[in-house]
């Protein structure tokens, strides 16, 4: 039961992407650097406005301090702001894990529940995705399948590109004849990290909500054979 209790095996790429620990001292150092960076900036501005040698010297000194502060802040940007965002969402489907896995595993089914996905084609351990972006432009993405255990588990990572992420989906029997628990996990680095995630949430476009929606549509297609809709139904003006 030990491994069955886990949503994902320990060696999953998602697990390997977890946030590094024990960074606190560096962050505290960085906080000081941000403060000194602001002071340095002020010094530059003051120096540039002032005529004469004193002003030039002050601006130069301020510039040097600013560079030093930026160097200290850089690792924080890398480790905190750029830290991988991890998302996990689950849904229970009233079908066997084998059947549920099979549906997900068939590339022609993916566009039925992944919004914006136009097509998915498989060659060897690679999956080529064509999607339509929000602005309508096409987007191409290649995935490398890392593990594929029939009826149980699929994991992948992106082969380069701006939307890089690692993901995994696990299928396990639900207790009491309730079908299959589907656990979807993904992890990605974003240039604006948690802040971007928060902004996305305000716009209703955060990845967590999108993953929940995708799993809901997956369930609807697998169980009911259609996605419920009210689009284009009559209504008063």
């Amino acid at each position: 039961m030990g491994t069955a209790m886990r949503a994902l095996p320990a060696e999953s790429p998602v697990a390997a992407w977890r946030r590094p620990r024990a960074m606190a001292p560096a962050y505290m150092h960085a906080a000081g650097s941000i403060a000194s960076g602001i002071g340095a900036g002020a010094l530059v501005v003051w120096g540039m406005r002032r005529k004469g040698v004193v002003g030039k010297m002050a601006a130069l000194a301020g510039g040097a301090l600013a560079v030093r502060a930026a160097a200290a802040v850089a690792p924080v940007y890398r480790d905190v702001i750029l830290a991988p965002v991890r998302i996990q969402r689950s849904v229970t489907i009233n079908k066997s894990p084998e059947e549920t896995y099979r549906f997900w595993h068939s590339p022609e089914n993916l566009p039925r529940f992944m919004r914006h996905l136009v097509s998915a084609t498989v060659s060897g351990d690679r999956v080529h995705l064509t999607a339509r972006r929000h602005d309508g432009h096409p987007m191409e993405l290649d995935l490398v399948v890392d593990r594929d255990v029939p009826g149980q588990y699929i994991s992948w990572h992106t082969a380069g590109g701006i939307k890089s992420h690692a993901g995994a989906v696990a299928f396990r029997p639900a207790p009491g004849n309730r079908g299959c628990e589907v656990i979807f996990e993904m992890s990605y680095r974003s240039a604006i990290g948690e802040a971007g995630r928060f902004i996305g949430k305000l716009r209703g476009r955060d990845p967590g909500t999108m993953v929940s929606g995708m799993l809901r549509r997956f369930k609807q297609v697998v169980e009911a054979g259609e996605i419920p809709t009210t689009r284009d139904q009559p209504r008063g003006v």
């Binding site: 054979g225 259609e226 996605i227 809709t229 284009d232 139904q233 009559p234 008063g236 003006v237």
Partner: peptide, 15 residues
């Protein structure tokens, strides 16, 4: 409430 003219409904899904 108001009684209005609206378009007729159409089949949107297979069921």
């Amino acid at each position: 409430l108001e009684v209005e003219n609206v378009p007729d409904p159409k089949i949107l899904n297979p069921h």
